[in-house]
Amino acid sequence: METFVALLLFLFPLAYSPGPGNIFFAANGARYGVRATLPANFGYHVATIIVAVVIGSGFAAIMDQFPRLFDVIRVLGAAYVLYLAVTFLRAPSGDHDSDGNPVGFVSGAALLILNPKAYLIMTLMYSQFLSASAGWVHVLWIAAIFTLNNFVAFLIWTALGEQIAVLFQNVKTARILNIGFGLTLAGVAGWMVLG
């Protein structure tokens, strides 16, 4: 129980602070609503638990041996987030029905796979909470706690985005919201490349 509480205290600021995933889900919550964003959230978190188990099982050692691999993931992730930013900048309004289709399961999974912040957090998490003698059960337990905590954080960010959209219901103010989220995502893409 003590380790569980320590893990949650470690993860809380990391999961709830602005980052590529949180901004992505807030923006999509504003644009499409919480319900329409659920498939992307599930995609992100299915990928999360898979990647967390892989990292807990030794992927961090591979990343240490091949640091260029991390650079490739970082650049691809930034390019993907920039692509998402452009879709917001080009969107004409915040009307849930006229803005195209919400992102789905695959896009959510891609966002995690191309999110270098997630790899860093997972590696750091395991370095603090996984002993050298720990087995698969411990790896799975940490991965499950990490995934569930992130899932809740993203639901909160998505709901906040949906509530913000209520303030921007007419076409003119909805356009301002889309531009704001687009520029924020573009800033996150820049941070991913430079950070």
Rank of each mutant, 00 (worst) to 15 (best):
G180A: 13
L7Q: 09
I23K: 06
D64L: 12
T147C: 08
F168R: 03
F24E: 00
V51C: 03
A165L: 04
Q65E: 14
P39F: 01
G33M: 13
Y80V: 06
A132S: 14
L194Y: 14
S131Y: 15
L11V: 05
V166D: 12
V171F: 06
A30M: 01
P39L: 04
L38P: 01
G94D: 10
T158H: 02
G43N: 00
I156D: 06
A132G: 14
M63R: 08
S98T: 14
I62T: 10
G104N: 01
V53E: 01
W141T: 15
S57A: 02
R90W: 04
N149W: 11
I55S: 02
V166H: 09
P92V: 07
P13H: 09
S131G: 15
F181P: 07
Y80C: 07
P102E: 05
F168W: 05
G29C: 08
A109R: 10
N170T: 15
F146H: 15
N22Y: 01
A27S: 10
G100W: 04
F70Y: 13
N178L: 00
I73E: 01
Q128C: 13
L114S: 10
A40L: 02
A27C: 01
N28Q: 07
N101S: 14
I176H: 10
A186E: 11
S131P: 09
Y80N: 04
A153Y: 03
R74M: 11
N41C: 08
G190A: 13
I50A: 14
L89S: 02
L8A: 02
V51L: 06
P102F: 02
L11T: 02
G182C: 06
F181A: 06
L140M: 11
I145Y: 08
L76G: 08
V193S: 08
A109V: 05
I23F: 10
V152Q: 07
G187S: 05
D95I: 14
F12E: 05
T184E: 04
L194W: 15
A47T: 06
A143K: 00
G33P: 02
L177D: 00
G58Y: 02
L120E: 11
S131I: 07
V152R: 06
N115H: 04
V193F: 10
A174D: 12
P92L: 05
T3I: 12
N101G: 03
I176G: 06
A144T: 13
A153K: 02
S107T: 14
V72T: 12
R68C: 00
A134G: 14
A26N: 14
V152L: 07
N170D: 15
A26W: 03
V75M: 11
V5D: 11
S98D: 13
V51G: 02
V193G: 08
L148H: 03
V81A: 05
L167Q: 10
G187N: 08
A174Q: 13
N28K: 08
F66H: 12
Y126H: 07
A78L: 13
G161C: 10
G187K: 03
L177I: 11
H96D: 09
K117R: 12
S98C: 03
N150P: 07
P13K: 13
L112G: 06
L160Y: 03
R90Y: 02
S98M: 03
V72C: 05
W141D: 09
A27P: 00
M192E: 09
Y126P: 06
S17I: 03
V5A: 10
A165F: 11
A26M: 15
A36Y: 00
T184R: 00
